[in-house]
Amino acid sequence: MRPLLALLLFLSLALAQTPTGEPPPDLSPEVFKIASQLRCPVCQGESAAESNAGVSQEMRRQIAEMLKEGKSEEAIRDYFVQRYGEWILYAPPRRGVNWLLWLAPAIGLGLLGLGLWRYLAEARRREAELALGEEELRALEHRLEEE
């Protein structure tokens, strides 16, 4: 253990880990579940469950403490929203402009479906107008392609 201690003394200034010298708290799966819905404030694109930045560790600790106090998941989320705003939530609340996001699958499918329906209706209308057999058409298309 001696080389470990010597090197750690040398490095100790650089380490931001456990400044108090005490071990981090024990955490249950529920803590990580809640933390994964919250954004790590200093990180770029990581949740408080993924990141090991100091703030995320403190956030996990506070979540564990609040769970022990018997607070609900929703109350814990609110606690962080009060401090950071809704920016801290990785799933924006379902209201206002955010509906645009939540309905994105329906909007996307709807728009594409509408386009498709119009396309098919037109193709069918043309078929009726031309009133040509499919065989003839294919032959014609083939000839066009050859040119």
Binding site: P19, T20, P41, V42, G54, V55, E58, M59, R61, Q62, F80, R83, Y84, G85
Partner: peptide, 13 residues
Amino acid sequence: PRGKVGIDYGMYG
């Protein structure tokens, strides 16, 4: 040392 006040103030970093 825990950074509790920082969270109360909604500090990013």
